[in-house]
Amino acid sequence: MVWDRLNTHISKTMKALVAEREWLTIVLLPGYAPELNPVEALWAHIKRSLANVAARTLTELETLLRRRLEALQYRHGVLGGFLAGTGLDLDRPDGP
Rank of each mutant, 00 (worst) to 15 (best):
P38H: 10
I10C: 11
V2A: 02
W3M: 14
E20A: 15
W3V: 12
K12C: 05
L90S: 06
W43C: 05
D89A: 08
G95N: 09
R56M: 10
E60M: 00
A84S: 12
Y74Q: 12
R21D: 15
V27W: 01
L65H: 05
E35A: 13
R66P: 00
R67S: 06
R56N: 09
L29P: 00
Y74F: 06
G81K: 07
G85Y: 04
A71H: 04
T63S: 11
G85H: 08
R67L: 02
R67W: 00
P93W: 02
H45G: 01
T57D: 04
E62N: 13
W43S: 06
T8I: 14
E22W: 04
D94L: 14
T57E: 08
Y74K: 08
D94K: 15
G77K: 08
Q73A: 03
V53N: 05
E22K: 13
G80D: 11
L28E: 07
L42D: 05
E62M: 01
V2F: 02
L29N: 02
Q73V: 09
P96K: 03
E62F: 09
T86N: 05
M14R: 03
W3T: 12
G85A: 10
L83R: 01
P96Q: 07
A41I: 00
R21T: 14
T59Y: 00
M14H: 04
T13F: 11
W3E: 09
H76L: 12
L36A: 03
A71C: 00
L58M: 12
P96V: 12
R67H: 04
L6G: 12
M14Q: 10
K12V: 13
K15D: 10
L83S: 01
L65P: 01
T13Y: 07
E40F: 02
Y32R: 09
E60W: 00
A33Q: 03
D4A: 11
A71V: 01
L36Q: 03
L36M: 09
A84C: 07
E62R: 14
A71P: 00
P34W: 05
L29Y: 04
E22V: 14
P93M: 04
L6F: 15
R21K: 15
V53T: 13
V2M: 08
Y32G: 04
G81Q: 07
K47H: 12
H45W: 12
W3R: 06
L61A: 06
D91K: 12
K47G: 08
T86M: 03
L24D: 15
P38E: 11
I46V: 15
A41Y: 11
R56Y: 05
L79I: 15
L64F: 03
I10T: 14
S49W: 08
V27G: 00
L42R: 05
G85T: 10
A16L: 02
L29K: 01
E40I: 07
P38F: 02
W3N: 07
G31A: 12
R5E: 04
R75I: 03
A55R: 05
L28Y: 09
